[in-house]
Design a protein around this nucleic acid. Structure first.
Lengths: 170, 170
DNA sequence: CCGACCCGACCAAGTGGTAGATAGACCTTG
DNA sequence: CAAGGTCTATCTACCACTTGGTCGGGTCGG
């Protein structure tokens, strides 16, 4: 999933799994199904990671501070980017099912952030939602930029700036 | 350029220009050339827009405040995204020439922001560069997110949050 | 005449997807 | 227990279509 939906082709996947291309259709009838399944699994994994952080850190501020970890991990792992970002360019011709699954990724991120922001009092209760969206967008944008340069240090620098201005807890 | 580099195909472009596909090769030998040319023109246009803002606004703080305008305009105009974002998913298999041109887009944005941040004193002199990168990434991320929902109001909301925390001048 | 521009015809490669056959696991039944 | 049937997963072979790109020839202004 590092090369976009268009870059996703049955032959390569089959080869990677040690199978022939047409056999895939036995598990996923169409490419849209396959894409949606991949996307779904991706955001489900993310839900797990977010839950783990919230579990390990009873203090919501500490948990929030660890949020960028997830996006940083993608970069470390083969310079990957998150679902929403990769969807961007191909958004127009993405099958609807895939689109909704990808949007779920953003939704679960914003929901997690929003809840923690509400638990802390660092933001007015009515603004935790929009603040969550802003954080998500900023961190995803930083990941995007850093990936374009294959430079994780760049990512860290931008996250540091977000903390400096108070977008993220310091 | 709304559907990524892969979505860029000779037949469609030819039709749009009122020409047949093979004729394009007379102007751009290869697809990489075409892509690089499009990318180059895109960031050159952006340079012009940034210069216009800086020209119209003698106060650098006011100019900085107007920065998101450019990304907002792309969204209004057929829900488009900026070059760097669209490059994201396809980054791995993008021809080198295209890659460098696309990176130029980010570079000119960061340069413009950095200069204005230096002119104002709202940030320590040594940090204007990293702050510029953070602003660029955040605004691009907001554009990306908003485009995924085809919701310009969402973009405005996130920009407002950036201003609220002081990432962007209020 | 020449060079810039454009065309129709074509090509090799790659795409998602289909059809039909095969092999084995498992379950039912005489 | 053996025989048969069914289901699942895989295969080979193929298809229609799209892609970037080539080739040779036409057309037209300088």
């Amino acid at each position: 999933m590092a090369r976009g939906y268009n870059g996703l082709n049955f032959r390569d996947i089959a080869a990677q799994v040690g199978i022939k291309a047409p056999s895939i259709h036995h598990h996923f009838a169409t490419k849209a199904d396959l894409g949606a399944a991949v996307a779904r699994r991706y955001w489900e994994d993310t839900v797990g990671q977010l839950a783990a952080i919230a579990d390990e850190e009873p203090d919501p501020i500490v948990a929030l501070r660890r949020y960028p970890e997830i996006f940083r991990a993608s970069l470390s792992n083969d310079n990957r980017i998150c679902l929403s970002s990769f969807m961007a360019a191909e958004y127009d011709d993405l099958p609807d099912r895939v689109k909704t699954e990808v949007q779920c990724f953003a939704d679960v991120n914003v929901a997690w952030l929003g809840k923690l922001l509400n638990d802390t009092r660092i933001v007015e209760p009515g603004e935790s939602e929009s603040r969550a969206k802003a954080i998500y967008a900023a961190v995803a944008g930083a990941q995007l930029f850093a990936r374009g340069r294959s430079d994780i240090a760049l990512f860290d620098t931008m996250i540091a700036s977000y903390r400096a201005v108070g977008l993220l807890p310091a």
